[in-house]
Nucleic acid binder design. Structure first.
Lengths: 156, 156
DNA sequence: ACTGAAAGGTCTAAATG
DNA sequence: CATTTAGACCTTTCAGT
């Protein structure tokens, strides 16, 4: 018996639908329906349930940074003088548009962020004038991504 | 004069369209058109150009890992005994479905990966039996993301 | 570069198996 | 859970400006 599980279980048909839409959010529903062998309305019913249960958290167009002139991606480990300053630091990091991800991590740093910059000079400027300027930040360690070789979602 | 630029410049209308679709890939084009004050056909023309120029790299449904039972996200810095072994290591990492990102980085490590696991035990198992087993991997350093506080795309 | 119109696809809801 | 149907709405294309 499964009651009140926080974990949602999905069946093979749900997986097929999601796999298609995770690859292309605008893929026609009827195309998926024909491939699977059920009606379009059935797919819609399932999608509504997946949304209600929270399995689907949204859909996004993805944009190619490099073509827009953003060539330098980097990870920055941030040391805070007191770990308790985390909420204020995150609040300030949210205001920096170049910050794409921010994680509260175990290990040496208090915070690990992923940032996207036009070039190395832009990165240096960000580090020196924005990130190091945040109250409580004592030191940072930067790792530039020379090449992103894998970029994908969870596999169903 | 701008000729043969590798960087594509986009105007304010393109930005508005992209901002909407980066938030919700299935947002009706006509809704965006009415908001901006141009016809749906004009939006389609612009989207076609943005696709052709490579600005739009795709669209994706995003799935909530936690609801599917994947609760542990971690970053793993990987030391290779020879940096030249990178291509084989990446080839092997691609075969591990839990690996979401893989970056060739400057700094201490040769490779930095982001992985998603069910729990800490699953993470340990992955590290011990899959990642450490890759030819050329000498050592790893793991940083568990206790909380992802920012997750977004580049801002236009 | 944008528009309007036409044709076809998508989505929802209600009734049914 | 799946299906069908029907109407409303959305997408896409194309000739025209």
């Amino acid at each position: 018996m499964k009651t009140n599980s926080l974990i949602v279980e999905i069946d093979g048909i749900d997986k097929e639908i999601l796999r298609d839409l995770m690859e292309d959010a605008r893929k026609p529903i009827l195309q998926i329906a024909n491939k699977i062998g059920i009606s379009g309305a059935a797919i819609h019913q399932r999608l509504r349930k997946l949304e209600q249960s929270g399995v689907i958290s949204g859909s996004k167009f993805t944009v190619n940074h490099k073509i827009l002139g953003y060539n330098t991606m980097a990870f920055v480990g941030i040391y805070l003088d007191k770990a308790a300053r985390n909420p204020e630091a995150v609040r300030d990091l949210k205001k920096i548009p170049e910050v794409l991800e921010c994680h509260y991590t175990t290990g040496n740093w208090s915070i690990l962020i992923k940032i996207i910059c036009r070039d190395n000079q832009h990165l240096m400027h960000l580090l020196n004038t924005k990130i190091q300027a945040i109250e409580g930040v004592s030191r940072t360690e930067t790792f530039i991504s020379l090449d992103q070789q894998i970029d994908r979602q969870i596999q169903l």
